[in-house]
């Protein structure tokens, strides 16, 4: 049971959160201008990092805030740094 730091609510049990996958995958500014290949890359390709991974979580059973954390996928350790302040996709 990980303890996940919600930027609004503080550390809460993992069961209150919903996972949102890799962070910083931006929606293209003009999707119509993107090639089929690049669009498929945006839709379907995600990193599967072993080690420190920047990822999104949603405090679904709490304040509904989406936020980004850096987590080591081998130890589940979450790194506390400024990235909690930046709400980026």
């Amino acid at each position: 049971m990980m303890l996940i730091p919600c930027p609004w609510c503080g550390p809460r049990n993992e069961t209150e959160f919903h996972y949102g996958g890799q962070a910083d995958v931006s929606y293209p500014a003009d999707p119509q201008a993107v090639s089929d290949v690049d669009w498929a890359r945006f839709l379907f390709f995600r990193a599967n990092t072993k080690g420190i991974f920047t990822e999104r979580w949603n405090h679904q059973a709490g304040c509904r805030r989406w936020f980004t954390v850096r987590r080591d996928t081998t130890t589940n350790e979450i790194f506390h740094d400024d990235s909690h302040e930046a709400v980026t996709r």
Binding site: H18, N58, R64
Partner: peptide, 9 residues
């Protein structure tokens, strides 16, 4: 959750 995702991020 989906709507909040797009609105917030």
């Amino acid at each position: 959750e989906w709507l909040e995702d797009w609105l917030q991020t």
